[in-house]
């Protein structure tokens, strides 16, 4: 009977230890779940934020490319118009210079004949020379104005070509940036989708784990308590028998 009593006590102790160790495992599991799921939610929100930032960046870059295309198109149109307008102006200058040479030649001829002319003719020739000088002056002013205009247009054409090159370079760089940003966006969109799927699976797995732990804690607690009660009664019975039989 002593041996059996020892066994009863050791089992009772083992059950008591088990019961105290198991107590609270469901709370621990629920706490682990809360901490983990909060972090999971943060990870999903962080990825969602990155996707939104990249979507905005893609839009910004696309808008910038459209704006650059519009400016390049406008500049090319203006440069084309200037290029079309320049040759007639050069021709006009050439023509005016030719007219000026003709007038100079006429002036020289009249001056050459001036010494041999009589009084009446001389007055008329003087009048012609005055007209020629006035025409020369007008022509030189017109040539000067047209050359100034050509110079301004050439400068504007050079500026436009330079601007077109700069805008084209910026457009090319922006297109590269857009391509890279789109790649990142697609990867983060894919990551977000996979995170959501993995998060749903994790939630289901946590549901099953926490339920299993709660169930085990409830069953084992009731079972161990009931067994301990029986064992206590057995030990009391053994103690009583020992006192009666004097062992």
């Amino acid at each position: 009977m002593d041996v059996e009593r020892e066994a009863l006590i050791s089992v009772k102790l083992a059950l008591g230890t088990f019961q105290s160790e198991i107590a609270g495992i469901a709370n621990t599991a629920a706490s682990r779940r809360a901490g983990c799921e909060a972090d999971c939610e943060y990870q999903i929100q962080d990825t969602q934020y990155k996707v939104e930032v990249l979507e905005e960046e893609v839009k910004r870059l696309s808008d910038r490319i459209a704006e650059l295309e519009k400016r390049i198109e406008d500049d090319e149109y203006r440069e084309h118009k200037i290029s079309e307008a320049l040759p007639p102006l050069y021709d006009k200058v050439d023509h005016m210079k030719y007219q000026l040479q003709e007038l100079s030649a006429a002036e020289a001829r009249i001056r050459n004949n001036l010494g041999r002319a009589d009084e009446d003719s001389r007055d008329a020739m003087e009048d012609q020379l005055a007209d020629i000088r006035e025409m020369e002056s007008s022509l030189m002013t017109a040539i000067h104005d047209t050359e100034d205009r050509i110079s301004d247009m050439e400068a504007e054409k050079t500026r436009l070509i330079s601007e077109i090159n700069e805008l084209s370079y910026e457009k090319s760089e922006t297109e590269n940036q857009l391509e890279q940003t789109k790649k990142r966006l697609y990867r983060y969109q894919d990551k977000l989708q996979r995170l959501k799927t993995a998060g749903n699976r994790l939630k289901d797995d946590f549901d099953a784990y926490v339920a299993a732990v709660e169930q085990f804690e409830n069953i084992s607690d009731a079972s161990a308590a009931q067994k301990q009660l029986v064992l206590t009664q057995c030990i009391s019975l053994v103690d009583e028998m020992e006192s009666v039989f004097g062992r």
């Binding site: 797995d205 946590f206 099953a208 784990y209 339920a211 299993a212 732990v213 169930q215 085990f216």
Partner: peptide
């Protein structure tokens, strides 16, 4: 059950 579901988590 606890061990299996725990491993899965």
């Amino acid at each position: 059950d606890v061990l299996v579901t725990g491993d899965r988590v």
